[in-house]
Amino acid sequence: MLCRARLTLLAAALLALGVPRGGGARLLEWYTAWVSTAYTEPLGNRTVRGSAESGRYGDSSPKESAQGLVGIPRGASARHMEGCAADTDYDVPLPPGSRGPPSGEPPPPPWIALVARGGCTFKDKVTNAARKRAVAVVIYNEPRFGNATVSMSHLGTGNTVVIMVGYPKGIEILEPVRRGIPVKMTIGVGTRHVQEYISGQSVVFVAIAFITMMIISLAWLIFYYIQRFLYTGSQFGSQGHRKETKKVINELQLHTVKHGDKGLDVDAENCAVCIENYKPKDIVRILPCKHIFHRTCIDPWLLDHRTCPMCKLDVIKALGYWRERKLRKRSDLPTAAQL
């Protein structure tokens, strides 16, 4: 019973985790992004291509494709790579034969900014790059943040495409750009993912359900041990009562059966409990109602039932009555001592 109650409450708590959408659970929708790159190694004139569904679109980003040359914040330090300064300039390596912009002018579109995570908000990074006319912003994670693509909040960044990639992918793209090699990047929409997450209201509900479960479980536990204590006490009482009853039963008259016993036809009469005829040397017990049974048959019966199997006389009460009145009568059958 206790286990069943606890399982029921556990099921209720688990159901609370799956609260309907209108009751606190909300849908979380996000998209992966295909990231394709291509550049030509100066040594050997070898084209290096790469493509993987390794990015994740930001929450406020339009789920659209984008392409352009990769540009990185100007500066040698890791701090510069975060692109947090409002006046950040970007270096965009151009293909051979292309003319760069005049000094101080933003690079020609289309181009994609590659910046490191950290130092400021995602919105600041995107805003600074968009101010320089970047068509997209790729933020690569760093190991100190867990190195996983996460959901990014950057509300208010307009139509700029924003994605996040892991640290290895970010360094893979960053390394040739730092060497002045033009890298062309294409961002494509990947797989749509939908999952439910629990709101604060649902967490409170689950906590209350869990505490309630624990309280009821504790109450059931206390009830169970009280019942067990009472049962054990009754068992002890019952055992004591059986000892007293056994004592009284042992006071009932015994007789060893012999041929020619007065009032007992050995060949015709049998024990009403085992339905076997009496035989010489059988030990029988004589009840106050004068009914005779094998001792081994009647003693266990009286211990459990207290009554004569034939006439239903309460032998213990009857014997107590005799003891109080001192009116015990001798049986017509001879005792073992007389025989």
Rank of each mutant, 00 (worst) to 15 (best):
Glu64Gly: 06
Glu64Arg: 15
Glu64Ser: 13
Glu64Asp: 08
Ser65Ala: 13
Ala66Tyr: 08
Ala66Pro: 07
Gln67Pro: 03
Gly68Tyr: 01
Val70Ile: 15
Gly71Ala: 13
Ile72Arg: 03
Arg74Met: 14
Arg74Glu: 13
Ala76Cys: 02
Ala78Leu: 14
Ala78Ser: 14
Arg79Phe: 03
Arg79Leu: 13
His80Asp: 15
His80Val: 11
Met81Gln: 10
Met81Pro: 00
Glu82Ile: 06
Glu82Gly: 07
Cys84Glu: 08
Cys84Trp: 05
Cys84Gly: 00
Ala85His: 11
Asp87Glu: 14
Asp87Ser: 13
Thr88Tyr: 06
Thr88Arg: 03
Thr88Ala: 12
Asp89Gly: 10
Asp89Trp: 14
Tyr90Ile: 06
Asp91Pro: 02
Val92Phe: 06
Val92Gln: 06
Leu94Gly: 00
Leu94Asn: 00
Leu94Val: 07
Leu94Arg: 07
Ser98Met: 13
Ser98Thr: 11
Arg99Gln: 13
Arg99Ser: 12
Arg99Gly: 01
Pro101Asn: 05
Pro101His: 06
Pro102Glu: 14
Pro102Arg: 15
Glu105Trp: 04
Glu105His: 11
Pro106Ala: 06
Pro106Arg: 10
Pro106Phe: 09
Pro107Gly: 02
Pro107His: 01
Pro108Ile: 07
Pro110Phe: 02
Pro110Ala: 04
Pro110Ile: 03
Trp111Gly: 09
Trp111His: 06
Ile112Val: 14
Ile112Arg: 04
